Simulated scan of single mutants.
Amino acid sequence: MNQSISMIRLIEAMNDQPIAFNKHYVFIGCGINGALMLSQLVYWTARTKDADGWIYKTQTEWTQETGLTRTEQENARKKLLELNFIKEKKQGVPCRVFFCVERENLYKALIEYSESLDSSQFAGNLQTRMQETYKLECAKPANKNAQNLQSNTENTTENTTDINLGADAPKAHKFSPKKFLIENDVSEQTAQEFIDLKNKKRKTITERSLKIIFNQAAEAKLTNERVFQIIVFKGWESFNATWNWSEANNQIEQLENPQANQPNIPQNFTADMGDW
């Protein structure tokens, strides 16, 4: 009896601090470990007393909360920094690492991800909710000094007048989906077919949405060329490594290599059966 009570208490202690894991972070390029760390960072960001959203956690605390090893933590941090979903700073003696979620970049990525999926694949209308949240977050001051922004507007305008280049100012770089696809090993024909498909569906192609597909291609261990061939073949708007794509991949393989599916026939074989 005492043993049973001890076991119950142990299980209750194990369930005392469950982690809220957002699986959608996986599909915007974070990977499993990156999504796990980002989920915890988002959770603690909402609870930090720091006005700018900075939080501090030791390596041991990360392990206790997530189960991630030191190497897994470092790889996850590297991935999140590359995606610009978090930023870090070191301060104090001894030196400590502080983390902050780049909420604007994260929300933009989630909105672009949601736009690439059908409503049936993205339950709960996340796109609408994320757009509303993004607007609210952008309306908030980034720090305490932001409240003084309006009073400094006149000075800022005066200081920038002299550097206004007017019509001579360089135009902003326009993103070219086709060029970006070709630069990432997608053939010109496949790139154009994908662009035509997206135009037919009236869907915007962004650099981030393409990078998400590249990431999923790596997850599925497929080339970028093959993944976009599958997207066009299936008429999909995007690609996810967990979707049922293997049959389409096999059909494309058969179309590209018909000889590989033919039986081996000896060169001296004759169809004339008269001598038998």
Rank of each mutant, 00 (worst) to 15 (best):
G124A: 04
Y25W: 09
N125H: 08
N22V: 08
T161F: 08
S6L: 09
Q251T: 13
A191L: 00
I111N: 10
T128K: 13
E115Y: 06
D272K: 05
T45C: 06
Q17M: 07
R208F: 05
T69E: 02
Q131G: 05
I8Q: 04
S116T: 14
T48M: 08
M7R: 03
Q3E: 14
A218K: 13
A109D: 00
I182M: 00
I32R: 01
N143D: 10
G29I: 01
I32E: 02
Q262L: 13
E65I: 02
I230Y: 10
K57S: 08
Y107E: 05
W243R: 13
K198C: 14
N159E: 04
A123P: 07
N22W: 04
W245L: 15
I8K: 08
I111A: 13
G124W: 04
K87A: 15
A51R: 10
T58G: 12
A142H: 14
N125Y: 05
Y43P: 08
N184P: 03
P177L: 11
I230S: 09
Q150G: 10
T190R: 08
Q73W: 10
W243L: 09
H173N: 11
N261W: 01
T60N: 04
D162E: 06
I8A: 02
Q150A: 15
I19N: 10
S39W: 02
